[in-house]
Each structure stands twice: as C-alpha cells, then as structure tokens.
C-alpha cells in the first residue's frame, strides 16, 4: 500500500463542488508537486489529507490508516502528517524553542530535555539554531517559515504537506525556504507540496499534479508535463506563469 492513498475523493462546501473524483498515490520517499490556479482545490486537498476538512465521498489512507473513518484517531494520525501553511502560524506567545518542543512534550510525552535536544537538531536542519530563544515576531518571514518547518519536523512525521509556503514571502526570502525543502527532499522525506515555484517543482518533484476546477486534470513527471502539456488548460496555465 502507498504511504498516502487517495481514492475517488469528493468534497463539497455547501453547493460548491471543490474536489471531484480525486485519486492519487504517493509512495514513501516521493515528492509530489501540486500546481494549479487559485481556487482549484489544492489547499482543500492537503487539508483533507490530515483530516482538517472532512470529505463527502471516497477514502484517504495515510500509512495504512483511514483518515476519514468514524473511529479514526485524528490525534494519532496527525503525528504522522506534518503540515506547513502559507502564513507560518507560529505560536506568538512562545519562544522558538517552545514552539518546537510543545507538541513533542505534550502529545508524545517526551521528556523536556529530549525535546530540547530535538529542537536543536531540527533548528540545525533549517539553519536557525541561533534563533532558539527568539519570539516569532523577532524573526523575518523566511525565518518564521523555517521555524514552522522545524516545528513540524520535530514530530517526525511520515509525510509532510506544504501549502504554498513561500507565497507570503518577499522575493529575497524565498530562496532560503526552498533550500530547506530541497534538503528535506534529498533526505528522502515524503512530501506533497502546493507551489507556484515552477522551476523548483521541476527540480525537486518526482511527479507534478495539475489541478483544475477540483479535478486532477493532468499529472506526470515534471519534464514531460512542462514540456508537452496535453490539455489547453495546463498549457495556458504554464504560459501565464512563465
């Protein structure tokens, strides 16, 4: 079974069909990039994978566990799925260190000393060990986003979801965040990332998924998808972006 297995998923907000017949498998160690216009359902799909949004039809499994079941333990599931949002969402009243150690100590019952060692380790991976005692509002957007990635990494998830995590950043700060993502990809982290950085998607992703009007319109290896789009929708999307 694939690490993430999405089968025939449908999702509505009221009368609005937001996801339609979505099927997607992600193997361990794969990196999947999701692209598409604003409003095409990319964020919703990610949020369904960690159970933040319920689905109306179909099934989603992560690491063999059904996400959308009546008896699903979402608390346990979410320890396997990390998610990083466009707006960082760090906890403003806590230091960088506490932002990172909170979930390991409270959810996984790590001893504080172990959680601190872990915080140092994940901050090293994102290159921010020196900011361990800062508060979020003392950091730049790029630094905050790297802390958010570190916070998620500290839960040692099996798969990480990234929702346009560079879109809110000033252009000169995007690079430092993408560098962290590339590093994680090299380490073999399974990830699904929604992005507008086409060059990055091409470099890092094993597979690119183009979403349009709530459907997976086209998908395939990046070279093929970008070089010879099969549908006029993808063609015009790529032209608009490049």
């Amino acid at each position: 079974m694939s690490l993430v297995q999405i089968e025939k998923v449908y999702k509505k907000f009221g009368d609005l069909q937001v996801l339609e017949d979505i099927s997607l498998n992600v193997e361990e160690g794969q990196q999947i990039a999701i692209i598409g216009r604003s409003g095409s359902g990319k964020s919703t799909l990610l949020r369904c994978i960690n159970g933040l949004e319920p689905i109306n039809q179909g099934n989603i499994h992560v690491d063999g566990d059904l996400v959308n079941g009546q008896k699903t333990n979402l608390k346990l599931l979410r320890q396997k799925v990390g998610i990083v949002f466009q707006s960082y969402n760090l906890f403003p009243h806590l230091t960088v260190e506490r932002n990172i150690t909170l979930a390991p100590t409270v959810v996984k019952k790590f001893a504080l000393a172990d959680a601190r060692a872990l915080a140092h380790e994940v901050l090293r991976q994102v290159g921010l060990e020196d900011k361990i005692d800062s508060y979020p509002d003392q950091l730049s957007g790029g630094q905050q986003q790297r802390v958010a990635i570190a916070r998620s990494l500290a839960m040692q998830p099996k798969v990480m979801l990234f929702d346009e995590i560079t879109s809110a950043l000033d252009p000169e700060l995007i690079g430092e965040v993408l560098k962290v993502l590339e590093y994680l990809a090299q380490q073999g982290m399974t990830m699904i990332l929604v992005t507008h950085e086409m060059g990055f998607a091409q470099r890092v992703a094993d597979r690119v998924v183009f979403m349009h009007e709530g459907r997976i319109w086209e998908s395939g290896p990046p070279e093929q998808l970008f070089a010879s789009p099969e549908t006029p929708e993808l063609d015009s999307f790529i032209r608009a972006i490049l």
Partner: peptide, 12 residues
C-alpha cells in the same frame, strides 16, 4: 490558523 496549526501537530 492558531487552532489549526496546533491541532495539526496532534494536540487535543
């Protein structure tokens, strides 16, 4: 987003 970020980390 504060609620979502914390519940996404597995907090009850």
């Amino acid at each position: 987003p504060q609620w979502e970020a914390s519940s996404s980390l597995g907090l009850g």
